Simulated scan of single mutants.
Amino acid sequence: MLTGLQVAVLGGDARQLEIIRKLTELDAKIYLAGFDQLEQSFTGAVKENMEDIPFEQIDAIVLPVAGVQATGEVETIFSNGNLRLSKETFDRTPNHCIIFTGISPPLLTNMAEKTGRKLVRLFDRDDVAIYNSIPTAEGTVLMAIQHTDFTIHGSTVAVIGMGRVGMTVARTFKHLGADVWLGARRSEHLARAIELGLTPFKMNELAAVAEKADIIINTVPSLVVTASAIAKMRPHTLIIDLASKPGGTDFRYAEKRGIKAILALGLPGLVAPKTAGQILANVLAELLKNDATK
């Protein structure tokens, strides 16, 4: 239980609702800012204006997955008002206050460092990434269906990257009957591809694989789907890039060649916000419990 813990949830989207629900169930006291248009209510949670939150008593601040914008503004879809986070906000909190975010833009990192507050980037955690790979894979399937005129079953799919997302995506498309090729640099990843029943290829072989692929799915956050590979693709080939912005595809050349290439950011929050929120809520609750027992 989190009885006695006081948490400020500042802005966010539908995923934040699952976090609020979980923390109130665990008996934490929650202050909500940026939720004035939310009709749903939670026992143990109170809506406040940002300036009325008693930050001097707050044990943790939960920010949206994107953290804050370069201006310090906090994204919220449940309010027409503006929320702005500043170093002064952090200064008002106790020294033990923890800041939770999905990712941490430079401004947020800088504010946490200058005030000595612990900053937890949930999206950097292996457990969150692995859990999130499930709705990401399902969202990728949805995009493949929406943007092609052929079935996944029987198609040739090249997945680039054998990380936490790549493995789940490759396995999902294989279960749907695709002929899945998996590209990686490390020999142990190529061996794992064989163990999973996939066809491995080295990264320098991508151009040759691109000639036969119907769908190419990239998970590597650096330029790997280059012009030389795109030049080999057939007109119907679909590229789905799951890597963080700006992705790992030469989108300019793909457009020039008439190859459809999609940068698919934030799929968990788009296709399964409830599940994505529950993933964050469960991990965050465990972190708060562990911190409370120290």
Rank of each mutant, 00 (worst) to 15 (best):
N80I: 02
N82L: 14
R84Y: 11
R84F: 10
S86Y: 05
E88W: 08
T89H: 14
T89I: 05
T89F: 05
T89P: 07
F90S: 01
F90W: 06
F90M: 13
D91P: 04
D91S: 13
R92S: 13
R92H: 09
T93P: 07
T93H: 05
P94H: 09
P94Q: 06
N95E: 14
H96W: 15
H96P: 07
C97E: 02
C97Y: 07
I98G: 04
I98F: 11
I99Y: 01
F100V: 00
T101I: 08
P105K: 04
P105N: 12
P106W: 02
P106N: 03
L107H: 05
L108S: 11
L108T: 06
T109H: 10
N110C: 10
N110T: 13
M111H: 10
A112W: 14
E113H: 13
K114N: 11
K114D: 15
K114A: 12
K114E: 13
T115L: 11
G116A: 08
K118C: 11
L119T: 10
V120Y: 09
V120P: 03
R121I: 10
R121D: 07
L122T: 00
L122Q: 01
L122C: 03
D124L: 00
R125W: 11
D126A: 10
D126H: 08
D126N: 15
D127N: 14
V128M: 12
V128G: 08
Y131F: 14
Y131V: 03
Y131S: 11
S133D: 01
S133Y: 00
I134K: 12
I134R: 14
I134D: 04
T136C: 09
A137Q: 01
E138K: 08
E138I: 03
G139F: 03
G139K: 00
L142Y: 10
M143A: 11
A144E: 10
A144G: 09
A144V: 14
A144S: 14
I145V: 14
I145N: 08
T148I: 09
T148P: 03
D149E: 11
D149K: 15
T151C: 15
T151S: 15
I152G: 04
H153C: 15
H153T: 15
G154C: 15
G154Y: 08
G154P: 15
G154W: 15
T156E: 12
T156K: 14
V157Q: 02
A158F: 02
A158S: 07
V159I: 06
V159E: 04
I160Y: 00
I160F: 03
I160E: 04
G161I: 01
G161P: 00
G163V: 02
G163K: 04
R164H: 14
V165W: 01
V169T: 09
T172H: 01
T172C: 01
K174E: 10
H175S: 13
D179C: 10
D179M: 13
V180L: 05
W181V: 04
W181K: 05
